Simulated scan of single mutants.
Amino acid sequence: MASDDSEEPQTAFDDRVEAALETLPPAEQRMARFFASQKQSVLLGSAAEIAALAGTSDATVVRTARSLGFESLAALRQMLLTDLTGTVSPGKRLARTLQETGNDSASALRHVVGLHESALEALKRPDMEAAFAQSIDILARANRRHIFGIGPSGAMADYASLQFNRIGLTSSALSVSGVALADRLLWLASGDAVLMMAYAPFYREVEIVLDQAALHDVPVVLISDNLGPLVADRVAATLPVPRGKADHLATHGGTMVLLEAMIIALAAKAGETAFDSLDRLSTLRGAIDKAWVKRGTRKK
């Protein structure tokens, strides 16, 4: 009989839980099953938050992780992350997404709009608002901002860098991979800040940027839906923005909304600097194309 591709695949973590279940006391059995069935919550939550969701104590959370053979909750998360990000190919992610949307265009539209509505709801949470305010303070104080992102996030890093520069906040995009990244990291210096969009798996480029930031005592603001718990001790603030369902095609609308909120918030912090920079932009455009002169500037 052909297998049902809509079912979640059995992972190495699931196998470990199954093998250990009979040896665990009842409270730890329940916790281990929670680990296996609520992987995203385990990845994103603290021990206390996981305990609250599971209806147990944070001591039970940590004890169960050790009973499953992990040195710590962080080590358990690392295996979960590997399972969630390393077992599903892009083609399978697309297939799972299409199984939910079908071939109907209207269904695809409703599906994606629903995902973005969920992401926007997450952006409204009080904890997100507090982390956002902290992140804006870090970015506004910096001498220079470096926005990191590769792949699809690279395009967003370029966009954020362009918009930050327009409001007078000197910025550069760390939007290349491989050895080309080295040239852009030459600009990183004490007094700067890094805005990082990064997701599991833990790419070498991410590790190098974090290492260089630590070397120069540069704070890092992380935007991610799954990497936060693994690098919590290496970043100054984390903004957990959902990118849709696990093992489905990632969606980036929530991240774009967050970046555009950052542009507005940073412009408010910059004050006259933002207006002066935009006036200069208008003048430069007019020098290139006289049609822009008709639009004028704030000062005229």
Rank of each mutant, 00 (worst) to 15 (best):
D217F: 13
S172A: 00
A250C: 04
V194M: 00
Y199N: 01
R285S: 01
A214Q: 12
R30D: 10
L43G: 03
A291S: 13
T64K: 03
L259P: 12
N103M: 10
M31K: 09
G286L: 12
V61Q: 01
D4Q: 10
A270V: 15
A59F: 07
A287V: 08
E8I: 07
S105N: 07
S89L: 14
P152H: 08
Q134C: 06
Q38M: 15
L174K: 05
P25A: 06
F34M: 05
V62Q: 02
Q134H: 11
R93I: 14
V62G: 02
A133E: 13
A287G: 14
N143A: 04
P126W: 02
S3A: 10
G55P: 05
P240K: 03
D104W: 11
I136L: 03
Q99A: 15
D137P: 11
M156Y: 03
I150F: 01
G244K: 06
L123G: 01
Y203K: 02
L81H: 01
L258G: 02
H252E: 01
L239F: 00
Y203A: 00
L21T: 07
G228R: 05
A119E: 12
T238I: 15
E100G: 08
F275N: 03
R144D: 01
K290W: 07
S105H: 12
S3V: 11
W292R: 04
R145N: 14
A182M: 12
L227P: 10
A237W: 10
A291P: 08
I138R: 02
K39L: 07
R16S: 14
S277C: 03
F202R: 09
S6F: 08
A95G: 01
S190W: 06
K39D: 01
P26L: 13
R77Y: 09
I263A: 00
L169V: 13
T87D: 02
N143D: 10
R145V: 15
M1Q: 09
L109E: 05
A19G: 05
E71G: 15
G286D: 08
S153Y: 10
L174A: 03
T60F: 03
D127G: 01
I223L: 14
I167A: 02
R144K: 06
A119D: 07
Y199H: 02
S72K: 02
N165M: 13
R77Q: 06
D183E: 05
A122K: 08
A130T: 11
S6L: 09
D137L: 11
V209I: 10
V220M: 07
A200I: 07
E272P: 15
A140S: 06
P90E: 00
Q78W: 05
R145E: 06
M196G: 03
D137W: 12
M262H: 03
L94T: 13
D279K: 02
P240D: 01
S282I: 11
Q99K: 05
A20T: 15
I50P: 11
L21M: 12
E117N: 05
D15C: 05
F70E: 02
Q29L: 13
V206Q: 07
N226Q: 04
G271N: 12
S177T: 14
R145I: 15
A74W: 09
L80S: 02
L68R: 01
N165V: 13
D289Y: 10
A214K: 12
